[in-house]
Each structure stands twice: as C-alpha cells, then as structure tokens.
C-alpha cells in the first residue's frame, strides 16, 4: 500500500485505490464500506471500500477476512496481502482523513460533525467506484449515527443500489470485513510512518494505544502540549480529551465566534452557538462613549489614550 502522498502531506486527506478488476465492470458487484480509527484521539481516520462480483462472494469468504477487530496488526497485513493477490476479482479504495482535517471540520464556524464527514466520505468512495465503472448493485455498511437516517441518505444518493445498513456489518458481511482490513492496514501504516511537522525535540513517541481512555495516551498529550499552540497536528484537537487538557493548561484564546461572555476557550475550543447576525455589523459602544468621525470607525481606527 503506497501512502507516500499522505506521508508527504498529512494535513489534509488522501485517496488511494486499487486498479478495477475487469470482471467488476462486467458483472454485478457488492460493495462493503468500513472505517478505521474513529475512536482514537491520535492519528487519521480511514474510510475504506471493497468490492467484488456477487458471483465471487464465496471466493472472498474463502480468504477468511474475518472481523478485523480480533486480528493483530501482523495478521491484518497478511490478510491485506491476500486481498491484493485476489486482484483479479477484488478491488478497494480508501480515503485517509487526517487528524487536522477532522479537527478543523468539527471546529470551523459552520460545524461539520464527524457523522456527516463519515457519511460524505463513504458516499464519495461509492461514487468513485461507480465512476470507475464498477457495476455496484449492493452496498453494505455499518451504522454511523441513526441507521434509518443513514440508510435513507444512501438510498437517496444511490437509488439504483440496494443498501443495507446494519450494526456489526463487518462481522456479518465478508465484503465489509474486507473493507475493514483495508482501512485498518492503511491506518496502521499512516500512524507508524507519521512525520511530525513540528519539532518535538526529545519527546518520546510512547503514546500508547492512542485511545482517549488510555493513561499513556493522556500522559503523552500532556507532555507534548505547547501552551500557545496546543498539540502537534497528529492530535485531534476536537476530541474532548484534548480540549480538557487545553482547558486546564493552555493559554486562553478567543475567536470571533467564541461563546458570548465566556472567559475564553483554549486554543482548540470554540463556542457552539450561532452568533447573532447583528454582531457582524456593529461593535457595541458604551452609552457615554463619543463616536469618532466615520472615516475612523469605518476603518477600525481609534484614538489611543494608553499603551
């Protein structure tokens, strides 16, 4: 799996895909979607799809791409190798979403939450397969948020496709298990080969599992914290684990859309309320304050009384 593009620039997203087997263009196919790295506070989240002709599902099952959660990293690598060897009838594609992209999406003014990001990424991968000529007739995917809403969304987007949204889909449907393998292997590689843009000096890379409830991960977060800049971009700033540490130990930072009256949220935090439209037009002025000539206040210029 060649992640060199993402290794070079791990600030955005990166798409990878296998060549499309000819048989997937000629026959009806089923497609599975799964994700890797949803829960951790560190590293990217990866969405993966895997597809094969309906007629070859038995062959896919024979590869024994079981529930990937029970497998070790080495076992996942081995299974991915098997999928690669089955390239005459199995195709895959991945979207790697960097922690920076996740953080900025969740924290920008028009909030783009993780579920929406997940849905859109999944749908974009299905569309990619269709655009590449894969004859997708069935899609299987695990639930992300309310199952019925996700199913409806997918059905509206792909009316010609039979969509099945089911909890634990990776243990029910081999094509989802296969997608899970691809996604997890990609995340494993991305994390292992992560290039920190920041100069972290002597910081040890012993961050544990990367999950928020791992004490080693929390300790590492505390150690790598910069009071002004927060964390390296390896960290998902939008995770409450990260925000709590910033709350306690970073300097207060206020943005234009910070919550009204708040003392100031830390580097990562922003208010969630929608600001009044009026707030964009006028700065509040004390009743006794004399307003200067429009030349000055239109340009944001004011008299200085003190340095």
């Amino acid at each position: 799996m060649d992640l060199s593009d993402f290794e070079r620039d791990n600030t955005g997203s990166c798409r990878l895909s296998s060549p499309v087997p000819e048989v997937c263009r000629a026959e009806d196919c089923c497609l599975g979607i799964d994700e890797a790295g949803r829960g951790p506070v560190l590293g990217p989240m990866v969405y993966g799809i895997c597809f094969c002709p309906l007629s070859r599902l038995g062959d896919l099952e024979a590869l024994k791409v079981a529930d990937s959660k029970t497998l070790s990293e080495a076992e996942r690598e081995r299974l991915f190798g098997k999928l690669e060897q089955a390239r005459d009838f199995v195709g895959w594609a991945l979207d790697i979403l960097s922690p920076n992209l996740i953080s900025t999406s969740m924290q920008r003014r028009a909030k783009y939450n993780l579920n929406s990001l997940s849905h859109d990424t999944a749908m974009a991968l299905v569309q990619l397969a269709l655009d590449q000529g894969v004859r997708v007739t069935q899609v299987f995917v695990d639930t992300v948020g309310p199952a019925d809403k996700y199913q409806q969304k997918l059905k509206e987007r792909f009316p010609e496709v039979e969509v099945t949204v089911r909890p634990k889909a990776d243990s029910l449907f081999p094509v989802v298990s296969a997608a899970s393998i691809c996604a997890k292997v990609a995340r494993d590689h991305a994390v292992k080969r992560w290039k920190f843009l920041e100069d972290l000096k002597d910081l040890k890379m012993d961050y544990g599992s990367g999950y928020p409830n791992d004490p080693k991960t929390k300790e590492w977060l505390s150690q790598c914290l910069d009071p002004v800049f927060g964390f390296p971009q390896f960290v998902r700033f939008s995770w409450s684990t990260a925000q709590l540490i910033l709350d306690g130990r970073a300097v207060p930072v206020r943005w234009e859309d910070s919550e009204e009256g708040a003392g100031g949220s830390p580097a990562a935090g922003r208010g969630s309320g929608t600001p009044s439209l009026l707030s964009y037009f006028a700065r509040t002025q004390a009743a006794t304050e004399r307003q200067s000539h429009r030349f000055f206040h239109e340009r944001g210029l004011e008299t200085v009384a003190d340095l």
């Binding site: 943005w255 234009e256 910070s258 944001g300 004011e302 008299t303 200085v304 003190d306 340095l307």
Partner: peptide
C-alpha cells in the same frame, strides 16, 4: 497619546487600528 520626534521638531498623533479578537 501623541508622539514628538527627535528634539520635538514635529508632532504626531497616535491612532490604533483595533478590531476585536
């Protein structure tokens, strides 16, 4: 606030461009 240059030959006013945040 005002500023006098060297030897107070010239007077300058001090304004600030000031936006919130």
């Amino acid at each position: 606030l005002y500023l006098f240059d060297t030897n107070a030959q010239q007077l300058f006013e001090v304004k600030a461009f000031h936006e919130d945040y």
